[in-house]
Design a protein around this nucleic acid. Structure first.
Lengths: 204, 204
DNA sequence: CGATTTATAGACTGTTTGATAAAATAATAC
DNA sequence: GTATTATTTTATCAAACAGTCTATAAATCG
């Protein structure tokens, strides 16, 4: 028994579009007008549904964590040999840095903004970084047990290093680092943990 | 035979202060009022001397390249064993990520901003990244000749990877990554090229 | 139908923004 | 001292900003 005039937009769809704008432009450079245009909803609907710009941004971060990071984590936790899953995750990263729009990663982009003084934002960034790091470390340990990775390697340190490197890579790609460089970097990182032939991450 | 009233501030000093504000807050979040206050010069003097906010930012980038990156490059090119110079550069990076204010790196911070659409900004970012990468690669090759680094390593790929990782590390540190993590990462990166004992980058 | 509830549309508010103009001030040259 | 030149000070501008208010439209319920 619903009442009143039904809204003619989908909340999730609108949130996803808002996320895209923040992703491409960053928080400060995104105006509420930009958001309205991209979300294709009127001003009042935006404020009624998402409270204000900052809250909408926080929800965009959460959604990104769910979708984008969720995909990486799921890939790392997939069935099968752990080393294959890790390689699949590298492939995801390669897609992210070589995609046409080069938007990088919403989280990586947010690290450099003044918004960082915002505790709620900060927490989300650290949480997601930890989430990736933990998943990678777990896969790495499994790969060691499965005999695909040298058990002498420090899984925690290596996963942290890869996390940082991918983070930096996303920023550099955004600024226009050539594909040859990004490939070099991903290959080198992957070689850090295994000796499989390189150039495994070229676009499929 | 100078004429007219002399200005009572030093251009370089003022530029350095402006650089500091951009560094900490980012371009968008920095207002002209912020700049005036930090530079301790009146509005008109700012516009007369530095044209406008964007031009001032470009000059700040150039100055940062000269000072901060110049120090890293000079460290890498110093006399003595190349491996020691590389280690010294790592120490510089460790200082950058563990300093109290955690401002990171002006360039690294700029990668994520919308300002990136600005071709002049983009060029400077790429130029400086290349500058560091080239210096590191050169030092690495020298260290190989001097027998301190495995000659089988791909100097170019490794230096690119370290460049990306340091870039990401600077962003993460800015968001509050604990010192234990940053140390882990720098140690792992350094171990990538040598087997010297780790924990070489703790604050002195 | 009429009352009620919710959504939309657009005008509007009070700040803050980057930037400019004009007046006032201070220092040198002659 | 006066003219000249440059700097500071103060006032001001139009545009953009996030966010609010009011009126209207569309749906459900009794």
């Amino acid at each position: 028994m619903k009442r009143g005039r039904p809204k003619k937009f989908d909340d999730t769809e609108a949130l996803e579009r808002a996320m895209g704008v923040f992703w491409r432009k960053g928080y400060d450079a995104t105006s509420v007008d930009d958001l309205m245009e991209a979300m294709e909803i009127p001003r009042q609907s935006l404020y009624r549904t998402f409270t204000d710009k900052r809250t909408l941004f926080l929800r965009a971060l959460d959604h990104y964590d769910e979708i984008a990071l969720g995909l990486v984590v799921a890939t790392l936790n997939a069935e099968g040999r752990a080393i294959d899953n890790i390689q699949a995750a590298f492939k995801l990263w390669n897609n992210a840095v070589s995609s046409r729009d080069r938007a990088g990663c919403l989280f990586a982009n947010t690290y450099a903004q003044f918004l960082l003084e915002d505790q709620d934002v900060r927490e989300r960034l650290m949480k997601s970084q930890k989430r990736i790091g933990t998943a990678l470390e777990k896969a790495l340990r499994l790969a060691q047990q499965q005999g695909d990775v040298d058990p002498a390697l420090d899984a925690k340190a290596i996963s942290r290093t890869i996390g940082a490197a991918v983070n930096g890579l996303l920023g550099l790609a955004r600024a226009g680092l050539p594909a040859a460089h990004t490939n070099d970097i991903l290959d080198t990182l992957f070689a850090l943990i295994t000796n499989r032939a390189s150039s495994k991450f070229a676009d499929s």
